[in-house]
């Protein structure tokens, strides 16, 4: 049976892993490669490296570490951050990234999605969506440039519409980052994820809000997502991947067990 994926996300800024609370006040967690290797050895099913400053500063992700990661780890990984052309995508994929994730550049130029899909195939094009629940209007709204608070802004899209747009353009996977929950560790936004799951025929990854093992069990059982992404709980050892996977497996959720020797 296809296993639910546990995906540590390493937010990268200036070549170091950082983590902020609701996208602000970033603190340095550590160097990229040792963390990547540690998570792979601990049983992570996949890794995401997200250059949180790239889009908002009009820079591309510093790529030298991508090849080093590809050389050393034997699980799939995704690179995100400021990828806005076929050439940038080709370079990252050639260095060994399994998937590339596009967020703000896709909002600026939606044609980028289908162009990348046609060139590299659906399987390696992930679309990240930063979605904010506006309590006043009771709507889920798509934001962009969320890596920098001063440039973060809402777009004209409601989340459900944008999700369907990117799927129609061939996106192979969606990472839905629920901004209200990000970094506050009170659980994934089950209600929103349930709503988007019903609209999403491609794999859907939950992001934002994980604080304890039960939150992972809840999001898999209640929102039927394919994977759960988290950062701070793994960086701070609040949740240990081995224990998380054992607990999920005990709850009857399909999980890839740790490989012997890990």
């Amino acid at each position: 049976m296809l296993a639910k994926r546990i995906i540590p996300c390493l937010d990268v800024r200036d070549g170091e892993v950082v983590k902020g609370v609701q996208f602000r006040n970033h603190e340095i967690i550590g160097a990229i490669e040792p963390l990547a290797e540690r998570y792979a050895a601990a049983g992570a099913d996949e890794l995401v490296f997200y250059d949180i400053t790239a889009s908002s500063d009009a820079r591309v992700v510093d790529k030298s570490w991508v090849e080093r990661i590809a050389r050393h780890i034997d699980i799939p990984f995704t690179v995100a951050g400021g990828i806005s052309s076929i050439d940038q995508a080709r370079e990252l994929l050639a260095m060994g990234a399994d998937k590339i994730s596009i967020n703000s550049p896709a909002l600026r130029d939606p044609d980028l999605i289908n162009t990348l899909v046609e060139e590299f195939g659906q399987q390696c094009i992930v679309i990240g969506i930063d979605s904010f629940y506006d309590a006043e209007t009771e709507r889920y709204l798509v934001y962009q440039f969320t890596g920098d608070e001063s440039k973060s802004q809402r777009t004209r899209w409601q989340t459900a519409e944008w999700l369907q747009e990117v799927v129609n353009r061939g996106a192979g996977e969606i990472v839905l980052n629920c901004m209200n929950q990000d970094g506050v560790r009170k659980g994934y936004d089950i209600r929103q994820l349930q709503a988007m799951r019903a609209l999403c025929p491609v794999p859907l990854i939950a992001s934002g809000g994980a604080g304890c093992i039960e939150h992972f069990a809840d999001v898999f059982q209640q929102a039927q997502v394919d994977g759960a992404l988290a950062a701070s709980v793994f960086h701070k050892n609040t949740v240990v991947i081995g224990e998380l996977k054992q607990a999920l497996s005990d709850s009857g959720i399909a999980i890839r067990p740790l490989e012997p020797g890990n």
Partner: peptide
């Protein structure tokens, strides 16, 4: 009906 098995088939399977 809602799609229970998304495509691409992506992830770890036995």
């Amino acid at each position: 009906q809602p799609l229970l098995y998304p495509l691409p088939h992506m992830g770890w399977n036995t």
